[in-house]
Simulated scan of single mutants.
Amino acid sequence: MSDLFPPTQLLYSVPFSLSLVALYLGLIILVAERLKRYYSSNSELTRKVVHIGTGNVILLAWWLKIPAWIGIGAAIIAAIIALISYFVPILPSINSVGRKSLGTFFYALSIGVLVGWFWPIEQYQYAAIGILVMAFGDGFAAIIGQRFGQHPYTVLGSQKSWEGSLTMVGISFIVTGLILASVYGNLGIIWLIAAIVSLNATTLESFSTLGLDNLTVPIGSAAVAFFLCQWWIS
Protein backbone atom coordinates (compact mmCIF):
# COMPACT_ATOMS: atom_id res chain seq x y z
CA MET A 1 0.00 0.00 0.00
CA SER A 2 1.43 3.37 -1.05
CA ASP A 3 0.78 6.77 0.49
CA LEU A 4 0.76 10.23 -1.03
CA PHE A 5 2.70 11.45 2.01
CA PRO A 6 4.23 8.28 3.55
CA PRO A 7 4.97 8.13 7.27
CA THR A 8 8.39 9.54 8.07
CA GLN A 9 10.15 10.92 11.08
CA LEU A 10 9.06 14.47 11.83
CA LEU A 11 11.26 16.58 9.57
CA TYR A 12 9.78 19.93 10.53
CA SER A 13 9.16 21.47 13.91
CA VAL A 14 5.62 22.41 14.89
CA PRO A 15 6.40 26.18 14.83
CA PHE A 16 7.86 25.88 11.32
CA SER A 17 4.87 23.85 10.12
CA LEU A 18 2.41 26.36 11.56
CA SER A 19 4.34 29.24 10.04
CA LEU A 20 4.19 27.56 6.63
CA VAL A 21 0.45 27.03 6.89
CA ALA A 22 -0.12 30.60 8.11
CA LEU A 23 1.98 31.96 5.25
CA TYR A 24 -0.01 29.96 2.72
CA LEU A 25 -3.37 31.10 4.12
CA GLY A 26 -2.15 34.69 4.26
CA LEU A 27 -1.20 34.55 0.58
CA ILE A 28 -4.60 33.15 -0.33
CA ILE A 29 -6.42 35.96 1.48
CA LEU A 30 -4.06 38.55 -0.05
CA VAL A 31 -4.78 37.25 -3.56
CA ALA A 32 -8.51 37.28 -2.83
CA GLU A 33 -8.39 40.88 -1.57
CA ARG A 34 -6.49 41.93 -4.70
CA LEU A 35 -9.03 40.20 -6.91
CA LYS A 36 -11.83 41.89 -5.01
CA ARG A 37 -10.28 45.25 -5.80
CA TYR A 38 -10.11 44.55 -9.53
CA TYR A 39 -13.31 42.51 -9.82
CA SER A 40 -15.50 44.30 -7.29
CA SER A 41 -18.62 43.44 -9.31
CA ASN A 42 -17.98 39.71 -8.89
CA SER A 43 -17.57 39.03 -5.17
CA GLU A 44 -18.43 35.36 -5.68
CA LEU A 45 -15.19 34.90 -7.66
CA THR A 46 -13.01 36.19 -4.83
CA ARG A 47 -14.87 34.05 -2.30
CA LYS A 48 -14.30 30.95 -4.40
CA VAL A 49 -10.58 31.70 -4.68
CA VAL A 50 -10.44 31.54 -0.88
CA HIS A 51 -12.76 28.51 -0.84
CA ILE A 52 -10.61 26.51 -3.27
CA GLY A 53 -7.25 27.71 -2.02
CA THR A 54 -8.02 27.12 1.65
CA GLY A 55 -8.92 23.50 0.98
CA ASN A 56 -5.31 22.73 0.08
CA VAL A 57 -4.39 23.33 3.71
CA ILE A 58 -5.48 19.75 4.41
CA LEU A 59 -2.69 18.52 2.10
CA LEU A 60 -0.18 20.70 3.93
CA ALA A 61 -1.40 19.31 7.25
CA TRP A 62 -1.09 15.76 5.89
CA TRP A 63 2.38 16.34 4.43
CA LEU A 64 3.69 18.06 7.57
CA LYS A 65 1.91 15.57 9.87
CA ILE A 66 0.58 18.44 11.96
CA PRO A 67 -0.79 17.08 15.27
CA ALA A 68 -4.55 16.65 15.50
CA TRP A 69 -4.92 19.05 18.44
CA ILE A 70 -3.38 21.85 16.39
CA GLY A 71 -5.64 21.17 13.41
CA ILE A 72 -8.74 21.07 15.62
CA GLY A 73 -7.68 24.20 17.51
CA ALA A 74 -7.03 26.10 14.28
CA ALA A 75 -10.41 25.00 12.92
CA ILE A 76 -12.16 26.25 16.07
CA ILE A 77 -10.42 29.63 15.83
CA ALA A 78 -11.27 29.89 12.11
CA ALA A 79 -14.90 28.99 12.87
CA ILE A 80 -15.13 31.70 15.53
CA ILE A 81 -13.63 34.29 13.16
CA ALA A 82 -16.04 33.20 10.40
CA LEU A 83 -18.98 33.47 12.78
CA ILE A 84 -17.96 36.98 13.83
CA SER A 85 -17.46 37.92 10.17
CA TYR A 86 -21.02 36.78 9.48
CA PHE A 87 -22.25 39.69 11.59
CA VAL A 88 -19.34 42.13 11.15
CA PRO A 89 -17.69 42.40 7.68
CA ILE A 90 -14.10 41.89 8.82
CA LEU A 91 -13.35 39.58 5.86
CA PRO A 92 -15.23 41.09 2.91
CA SER A 93 -13.49 38.92 0.30
CA ILE A 94 -14.97 35.85 1.98
CA ASN A 95 -18.46 36.92 2.96
CA SER A 96 -19.57 39.68 0.60
CA VAL A 97 -21.55 37.60 -1.86
CA GLY A 98 -24.83 39.46 -1.57
CA ARG A 99 -26.45 36.81 0.57
CA LYS A 100 -26.38 35.63 4.15
CA SER A 101 -24.62 32.30 4.56
CA LEU A 102 -22.82 30.45 7.32
CA GLY A 103 -20.82 28.53 4.73
CA THR A 104 -17.40 29.72 5.91
CA PHE A 105 -18.26 28.78 9.49
CA PHE A 106 -19.38 25.29 8.41
CA TYR A 107 -16.28 24.92 6.23
CA ALA A 108 -13.98 25.51 9.21
CA LEU A 109 -16.12 23.25 11.38
CA SER A 110 -15.91 20.40 8.85
CA ILE A 111 -12.10 20.60 8.83
CA GLY A 112 -12.06 20.28 12.61
CA VAL A 113 -14.44 17.31 12.57
CA LEU A 114 -12.48 15.46 9.87
CA VAL A 115 -9.11 16.07 11.50
CA GLY A 116 -10.55 14.90 14.82
CA TRP A 117 -11.93 11.75 13.16
CA PHE A 118 -9.11 10.65 10.84
CA TRP A 119 -5.88 12.03 12.32
CA PRO A 120 -5.90 9.78 15.43
CA ILE A 121 -6.35 6.66 13.26
CA GLU A 122 -3.78 7.87 10.69
CA GLN A 123 -6.25 7.72 7.82
CA TYR A 124 -5.44 11.20 6.53
CA GLN A 125 -6.60 10.44 2.99
CA TYR A 126 -10.28 10.48 3.96
CA ALA A 127 -10.05 13.92 5.56
CA ALA A 128 -8.33 15.08 2.37
CA ILE A 129 -11.09 13.59 0.23
CA GLY A 130 -13.79 15.32 2.24
CA ILE A 131 -12.19 18.74 2.19
CA LEU A 132 -10.92 18.67 -1.41
CA VAL A 133 -14.22 17.41 -2.82
CA MET A 134 -15.80 20.45 -1.21
CA ALA A 135 -12.99 22.84 -2.16
CA PHE A 136 -12.53 21.85 -5.79
CA GLY A 137 -15.85 20.19 -6.58
CA ASP A 138 -18.15 22.82 -5.12
CA GLY A 139 -15.77 25.67 -5.91
CA PHE A 140 -15.51 24.99 -9.62
CA ALA A 141 -19.17 23.96 -9.83
CA ALA A 142 -20.13 27.44 -8.61
CA ILE A 143 -17.77 29.16 -11.05
CA ILE A 144 -18.86 27.06 -14.04
CA GLY A 145 -22.52 27.27 -13.07
CA GLN A 146 -22.39 31.05 -12.73
CA ARG A 147 -20.48 31.54 -15.99
CA PHE A 148 -21.95 28.84 -18.24
CA GLY A 149 -25.10 27.61 -16.49
CA GLN A 150 -27.87 27.64 -19.10
CA HIS A 151 -30.06 24.88 -17.67
CA PRO A 152 -31.18 25.85 -14.14
CA TYR A 153 -33.15 23.81 -11.66
CA THR A 154 -34.38 24.58 -8.16
CA VAL A 155 -34.02 22.47 -5.00
CA LEU A 156 -35.53 23.67 -1.71
CA GLY A 157 -35.67 27.21 -3.03
CA SER A 158 -32.00 27.24 -4.06
CA GLN A 159 -31.22 27.59 -7.75
CA LYS A 160 -28.61 25.31 -9.27
CA SER A 161 -27.58 24.51 -12.83
CA TRP A 162 -27.00 21.19 -14.53
CA GLU A 163 -23.67 22.50 -15.84
CA GLY A 164 -22.52 23.25 -12.30
CA SER A 165 -23.77 19.95 -10.90
CA LEU A 166 -22.07 17.94 -13.65
CA THR A 167 -18.86 19.86 -12.97
CA MET A 168 -19.06 18.85 -9.32
CA VAL A 169 -19.63 15.20 -10.21
CA GLY A 170 -16.63 15.18 -12.54
CA ILE A 171 -14.17 16.99 -10.31
CA SER A 172 -15.24 15.10 -7.18
CA PHE A 173 -14.73 11.85 -9.07
CA ILE A 174 -11.21 12.85 -10.15
CA VAL A 175 -10.19 14.17 -6.72
CA THR A 176 -11.44 11.08 -4.87
CA GLY A 177 -9.96 8.65 -7.38
CA LEU A 178 -6.53 10.26 -7.40
CA ILE A 179 -6.26 10.39 -3.61
CA LEU A 180 -7.37 6.77 -3.20
CA ALA A 181 -5.03 5.66 -6.01
CA SER A 182 -2.12 7.38 -4.25
CA VAL A 183 -2.80 5.31 -1.14
CA TYR A 184 -4.11 1.96 -2.40
CA GLY A 185 -2.67 1.81 -5.89
CA ASN A 186 -4.63 2.00 -9.12
CA LEU A 187 -7.25 -0.62 -8.26
CA GLY A 188 -10.37 -0.76 -10.39
CA ILE A 189 -12.61 -0.69 -7.34
CA ILE A 190 -11.37 2.74 -6.26
CA TRP A 191 -12.94 4.34 -9.33
CA LEU A 192 -16.29 2.78 -8.45
CA ILE A 193 -15.90 4.20 -4.94
CA ALA A 194 -14.96 7.56 -6.46
CA ALA A 195 -18.11 7.50 -8.61
CA ILE A 196 -20.32 6.79 -5.59
CA VAL A 197 -18.61 9.51 -3.54
CA SER A 198 -19.00 12.07 -6.33
CA LEU A 199 -22.70 11.35 -6.84
CA ASN A 200 -23.31 11.46 -3.09
CA ALA A 201 -21.41 14.77 -2.75
CA THR A 202 -23.37 16.37 -5.58
CA THR A 203 -26.67 15.22 -4.09
CA LEU A 204 -25.74 16.62 -0.66
CA GLU A 205 -24.68 19.90 -2.24
CA SER A 206 -27.96 20.18 -4.14
CA PHE A 207 -30.13 19.66 -1.06
CA SER A 208 -28.16 21.83 1.37
CA THR A 209 -29.07 25.46 1.99
CA LEU A 210 -27.61 28.44 3.90
CA GLY A 211 -24.08 27.14 3.36
CA LEU A 212 -24.75 23.85 5.15
CA ASP A 213 -23.22 21.98 2.20
CA ASN A 214 -19.83 23.11 3.52
CA LEU A 215 -20.46 20.71 6.40
CA THR A 216 -22.54 17.93 4.83
CA VAL A 217 -20.44 17.48 1.68
CA PRO A 218 -16.99 17.11 3.35
CA ILE A 219 -18.21 14.85 6.16
CA GLY A 220 -20.54 12.88 3.87
CA SER A 221 -17.84 12.38 1.22
CA ALA A 222 -15.20 11.33 3.73
CA ALA A 223 -17.61 8.95 5.49
CA VAL A 224 -18.77 7.26 2.28
CA ALA A 225 -15.18 6.85 1.03
CA PHE A 226 -14.01 5.51 4.39
CA PHE A 227 -16.76 2.92 4.86
CA LEU A 228 -16.69 1.72 1.25
CA CYS A 229 -12.91 1.26 1.44
CA GLN A 230 -13.31 -0.71 4.69
CA TRP A 231 -15.80 -3.04 3.03
CA TRP A 232 -14.23 -3.42 -0.39
CA ILE A 233 -10.49 -2.89 0.02
CA SER A 234 -9.29 -3.41 3.60
Rank of each mutant, 00 (worst) to 15 (best):
V115H: 00
K160D: 10
W119E: 00
S158L: 09
V115L: 04
A195W: 08
I174Y: 03
K160H: 15
L83V: 10
L10P: 07
Y24Q: 06
E33R: 15
S41K: 15
L91P: 11
I144T: 11
W69R: 04
A223M: 13
H51P: 09
F118D: 00
L215W: 10
V31I: 15
I58C: 06
G188Y: 00
Y86G: 07
I233W: 00
V155E: 12
V175E: 06
P92M: 04
G149H: 06
V49G: 05
L210H: 15
Y12S: 08
A222Q: 03
A201H: 02
A128N: 00
F105D: 08
P92I: 07
S2G: 00
V183H: 02
F148T: 11
A201E: 08
S13W: 02
P6A: 01
V197Q: 05
L114M: 05
A127Y: 01
V115G: 00
P67F: 01
R37G: 14
I81K: 14
G145Y: 13
L4T: 04
F207H: 15
P15E: 04
I143L: 15
G145P: 12
G220L: 13
G139N: 05
I174G: 02
S158G: 09
V183C: 02
K48V: 13
Y12F: 15
V49H: 09
G149D: 11
S208V: 11
K36N: 12
T8H: 02
A22T: 15
T176W: 05
A194K: 03
R47T: 12
S165K: 03
L204F: 10
L212H: 09
Q150D: 14
L180F: 01
Y24R: 13
A74K: 00
I81C: 13
I52S: 12
S161Y: 11
L64F: 14
W63A: 04
R37L: 13
I143R: 12
V155H: 15
G164L: 07
W191G: 02
H51D: 12
I28M: 10
L91R: 09
L4K: 00
F105P: 13
L30A: 14
L204C: 12
W231D: 01
S182Y: 02
A22W: 07
S17C: 05
P92E: 06
L27K: 06
H51N: 13
L27E: 05
L4W: 01
V31R: 08
F105S: 12
K36Y: 10
I90P: 06
Y86Q: 11
S40F: 04
T176N: 02
P67G: 09
G211R: 06
S17K: 08
N42M: 05
S208C: 14
H51C: 05
I72K: 04
A222P: 04
V115W: 01
I84M: 13
G73E: 06
V115C: 01
N214H: 14
I179W: 03
A108V: 07
Y12R: 11
L109I: 08
W162S: 05
S43I: 07
M1Y: 06
T154C: 09
